[in-house]
Design a protein around this nucleic acid. Structure first.
Lengths: 200, 200
DNA sequence: GTCTATATCCAGATAGAC
DNA sequence: GTCTATCTGGATATAGAC
């Protein structure tokens, strides 16, 4: 008895996400250029040829991961901005949440590493570059707005909001990168250290 | 009339450092694996073959740069520790100096990017890995000691010194990476933001 | 949907002339 | 000290069988 359409669809989705998960792991730990299709295939437990049944090239896999990473980050940024809470609470929540996520979910840390690498690298697919150019401003802008609002109600320190947003994101991504690099032996710092960098 | 020994030596040193400088620029912007020997040769304005007159492989060039980067960072760390100044002044000096260096000297920012990449990557030469394993703890240890001393005289906030050192270095390197990535359009934040993260 | 076998290309490294 | 020409290996991507 042949498989039904639904079963085939399910297998397809499973394989696809298997491949993407392993590719993320490898790209994050070695970079795009140093990761071989053969490595991804081996890690995902499939043949090299099968990769090309699901993706047209290594670059397409990478681009897909970048797309997914920014979708997540920007959804979180929008969610934070919409949240019915005072600015100080949003900042606290963001720092605590981001640090917790980073520590608990290794893939989250890997996505940070991937975007950091990709943003910094000139050796990435054109389409990935396009996505980054288009998507990577939002988190900064949202955070700068929250900082500005917090300064109006006096809960945030009176430095330039853009500077504060920059320090916010570079600190978070610096920590996330450290986490991704050091794996399980990473110990997250007390969130209060960062929180008091911004709150008055 | 043939060139003297001294002139030959001088040419040799010049070429070597030319190659290293261009390799740093390229490795920082694309990573080790994505940088081709042909790219380095072209950027340095020499033939591909000549590269192998000065270095035995692409990996040796990379390793040499890593060695140089850690030598500089650790010399700075030792210098800071020896400095006859109170802990709070050292922290202030370090942050101001590191931010200034990072902004003024693009190569400094590139070295940060290089070490960040290298520390995070599994795809680097064995010898480079050895250097990193051996050298990358010192800055953390020095900064943790300074934080601890600062807590004893009450000038530094009472969070765990190791956490403070971690936040210190991940923030600095996060900013340096941002600087290397965004080039001239990067605007350094007010150092006071970071300084008050640590000082009481 | 999955595999094995293979064509093709490109990058690292070497050889030898000047 | 520097170049051009070339060898060689390995990685991407394709073809075709099951």
């Amino acid at each position: 008895m042949p498989r039904s359409k639904e079963q085939n669809e399910q297998i397809k989705e499973e394989r696809r996400s298997q491949i993407l998960t392993q590719a993320l792991r490898l790209f994050a730990s070695r970079g795009l250029a140093a990761t071989k299709i053969a490595d991804i295939a081996a890690a995902a437990g499939v043949s090299q040829g099968l990769i090309y049944h699901y993706f047209s090239s290594k670059e397409e896999i990478f681009t897909e991961l970048i797309r997914h990473a920014y979708a997540g980050i920007n959804a979180a940024a929008r969610y934070l901005e919409e949240l019915p809470a005072p600015p100080a609470a949003k900042i606290r929540l963001a720092i605590e949440g981001l640090l917790r996520d980073t520590v608990q979910n290794e893939d989250t840390a890997r996505f940070y590493l991937l975007t950091a690498q990709a943003t910094g690298s000139e050796a990435i697919p054109e389409e990935a570059r396009r996505i980054i150019r288009q998507e990577n401003r939002l988190p900064y802008e949202v955070m700068a707005r929250i900082m500005r609002q917090g300064q109006q109600d006096g809960s945030v320190k009176p430095h330039p909001p853009e500077d504060m947003a920059l320090v916010f994101w570079t600190s978070i991504s610096g920590l996330a990168i450290n986490r991704a690099v050091h794996g399980a032996e990473f110990k997250a710092p007390n969130p209060e250290i960062l929180i008091h960098t911004f709150l008055a």
